[in-house]
Design a protein around this nucleic acid. Structure first.
Lengths: 159, 159
DNA sequence: CTAATTTGGTTTGTGACACCAACCATTCCG
DNA sequence: CGGAATGGTTGGTGTCACAAACCAAATTAG
């Protein structure tokens, strides 16, 4: 989890693994992926913090961009306990970013929907993240960016 | 950001950004990197949880593999407030994974050093992470893995 | 040499966030 | 219709992040 991470602006955190054994030349693929992952997380945390949000809250709002969702769906997508989602949604609701509405499907259930303020913040957040990561990859050629995207897609499909 | 994340075993969490707008073909490079980052984080969280640790604790121990460190050095490497590092080290000390020893350089300072138990756990953790990520990239050829490592290195250098 | 300032680390307070167990209202099943 | 399962909340607990304040030690300025 992540809570709001100030003070992580200029230097992304080094990864837990490989820190002491990182070659000062290129990294092997495992170290490279781990360090890259933390770097991307630091970008996400920075953008989240700029909006007074955590990474998990940004993810919650991102899920709700295209569709309303019930609590258990959110729990599944986020990989969290349902009680954690109760807390997340309550805090987002308090910020007027989401609203709980009764589900027509089941009187026990609620649908979580973005408010217009939540929609604006989510759009802005996604744009900033996209900008930051585009800047990160600007040193690569378009072909290299395409290769990276293709390799990432291949890895993600093996799951 | 991270506490101990049980219940995130089979399915890594989808990323906050791009979830609703992911093409069902390949991803663009931004979405690919974000989703890959969360996937790697989920692997790290899983291995950490298997050792009853958080990702941050795994990173702490990883930093200490090659050298002892003072609290402020750890704070710098981890990108955390010094009081957060006090808590992390206290909890790790309670587990007998690390020890605080007086610094010869400055009577105010302490050096944090791995215990033998901490060293064993850190070795095991790193091996498991390496195995899991190697499995993740097994669908790529050696050439593709090298390309991915090179691209990751290039991105990380631009910072 | 002394006083003032800075620093290393801890403590306290606060809020977020994660999980587990228990609960209640509702739905489903036999 | 009764029992079991489910959706979401609540309470409890522990981790984790930061800010502010504190104390002892080191450094700096005069």
């Amino acid at each position: 989890m992540s809570t709001r991470l100030s003070g992580m602006t200029a230097q992304p955190p080094p990864p837990a693994v490989g820190e002491g054994s990182t070659a000062d030349d290129g990294l092997d693929v495992v170290d490279g992926l781990v360090q890259l992952s933390f770097h991307i997380q630091a970008v996400l945390a920075q953008v989240a913090a700029d909006h007074d949000l955590s990474i998990t809250q940004i993810r919650l709002l991102g899920i709700l961009r295209d569709r309303d969702a019930e609590m258990l769906q959110l729990a599944g997508h986020l990989g969290l306990d349902k009680s954690s989602v109760t807390g997340l949604v309550t805090r987002a609701e308090r910020r007027d970013l989401v609203r709980r509405v009764p589900s027509p499907r089941d009187r026990r259930a609620v649908l979580v929907t973005l408010t217009s303020q939540g929609r604006r913040l989510t759009s802005d957040g996604e744009r900033r993240i996209r900008d930051r990561i585009t800047t990160l990859t600007a040193g690569l050629t378009k072909t290299e960016q395409g290769t990276l995207a293709a390799l990432a897609t291949r890895i993600l499909r093996v799951r």
